[in-house]
């Protein structure tokens, strides 16, 4: 069971309180009806599946109930960092200890 730092609760909490919510930074167009078929496909269907660093959304559903973003390494399962919903994708990632 992973430990996940909730950026709203400001501490690490057990994974049982969380739910994964898919890839992060997939932006819904404010001009939805004007979206082309290709753009809609990219928005709704296409997801990256990297080996290594992934940006994803989690919800502290059985905690503060907030959605937030996380950077996780899919190889080590380790969380690199978490940050609040709406915040920009971090330009640089912190180094992770054990």
């Amino acid at each position: 069971m992973l430990l996940i730092r909730c950026p709203y609760c400001e501490e690490e909490r057990p994974e049982l309180e969380f739910r994964n919510a898919g890839e992060a930074h997939v932006v819904r167009s404010s001009e939805m009806t004007a979206t082309s078929d290709e753009d809609f496909e990219a928005f709704f269907f296409i997801r990256s599946n990297p080996k290594g660093i992934i940006y994803e959304r989690w919800r502290h559903i059985h905690g503060c109930a907030r959605f937030f973003n996380a950077v996780r390494d899919t190889v080590t399962d380790r969380f690199v960092m978490t940050y609040k919903a709406g915040e920009k994708k971090p330009a640089r990632l912190p180094k992770v200890g054990k």
Binding site: R28, R66, A85
Partner: peptide
């Protein structure tokens, strides 16, 4: 509820 919260918190905050 989750679907509504998702949109409220992340798309229409």
């Amino acid at each position: 509820m989750n679907h509504m919260e998702d949109y409220l918190q992340t798309e229409f905050p």
